[in-house]
């Protein structure tokens, strides 16, 4: 193999990686991420090509249609870097090959990126963060922001390097078992956490009373017979015994919610989620479902079904 005249330094590659952060900045309906792709490659183009014609040709190649998951673009950028480097060093690579590689990779890889990043990693990390944040813990947002960006930047840099090193051979590696395993593992982990989140954070409370039973005397605290001095508090606490002793009220009230909870806690939340899944599969817009649920909430509150 001939000695390479111009090589891209680590610094150049890092510069491309940083610029790929802005990949979607000029996202447009005609060629989608093309502007961003060319923008990301500019440090490399500047280094590799010195004449106006060469630069114009390189820019034209990369202003072609391009669209994939924004982080998954990194390994593809890496391959483009390797190809452009070879091209500049005298191994002519035509524009068709250059775009062929990009198009060949962007589809299948986007199919991995969307479920792994948008539908597993982000719901898990953001769900963790949000559950801390809801209780007023500032660590929630910090955890989400820091963890996400470390993962993201590490992924973008290492996969870009991987693409750069392997060049066009990358497609063989990608179709290997590991990537598939990661995707499947992510889906399992995601489903596990989703099950948890639904139980904990979807809140529906049915207020109607199912039964109201007058309890026998001695089963509840008789508030009228308490001594009229501070020891009354002590007496009550002893009788109540953290809920294990006597009842606080004369009537034992069972709401619909209590009945549902004794089957499986969170059953109503689960059913609601299944309903939403079904509606979404029936192509009902999520916005319509969300607005509908607000309406249900208001009506439920007014007629006293939900609380």
């Amino acid at each position: 193999m001939a000695e390479k005249k111009i090589t891209l330094t680590k610094r150049d590659r890092w510069s491309v990686c940083w610029r790929s952060t802005f990949l979607q900045g000029s996202w447009n309906y005609e060629r989608m991420q093309n502007g961003g792709y060319a923008f990301a490659l500019i440090p490399a183009i500047k280094k590799l090509y010195k004449t106006k014609e060469d630069r114009a040709a390189a820019l034209k190649r990369h202003l072609e249609f391009f669209n994939t998951h924004p982080y998954i673009a990194s390994p593809i950028l890496g391959v483009s870097l390797a190809l452009e480097e070879d091209n500049a060093n005298g191994t002519p690579i035509d524009a068709a090959t250059m775009s062929g590689v990009k198009v060949g990779m962007m589809g299948p890889l986007a199919g991995v990126g969307d479920p792994v990043f948008w539908f597993t990693a982000r719901p898990i990390i953001a769900g963790l963060g949000a559950s801390l944040a809801i209780s007023g813990n500032i660590l929630g947002p910090i955890l989400f922001f820091v963890l996400w960006n470390i993962l993201r930047i590490a992924f973008m840099w290492y996969t870009q390097e991987f693409g750069y090193r392997t060049g066009t051979k990358i497609t063989d590696d990608v179709s290997g078992g590991l990537l598939q395993k990661v995707t499947r593992g992510a889906a399992m982990m995601g489903m596990f956490v989703l099950g948890t989140l639904i139980e904990r954070w979807v809140t529906i409370k049915f207020t109607p009373e199912v039964s109201r039973i007058k309890q026998s005397s001695g089963a509840y605290i008789d508030w009228d017979k308490l001594p009229n001095n501070p020891t009354a508090i002590k007496t009550v606490l002893e009788q109540w015994n953290m809920g294990k002793g006597m009842s606080l009220t004369e009537y034992k009230v069972t709401t619909l919610q209590d009945n549902l909870d004794s089957l499986i806690p969170g059953l109503a939340a689960l059913l609601l989620t299944l309903l939403c899944m079904w509606l979404l599969k029936k192509k009902v817009s999520p916005i319509v479902i969300i607005l509908g649920l607000f309406v249900v909430g208001i009506i439920g509150r007014v007629i006293g079904l939900l609380g």
Partner: peptide, 24 residues
């Protein structure tokens, strides 16, 4: 209060979207 109740339920829509994407 009705809106707050609705807010507790709409959370399910986001989860449903995710499940529809990744479940098998």
């Amino acid at each position: 209060e009705g809106m707050t109740i609705g807010g507790g339920m709409v959370v399910a829509v986001g989860y449903a979207m995710v499940i529809n994407m990744i479940a098998n």
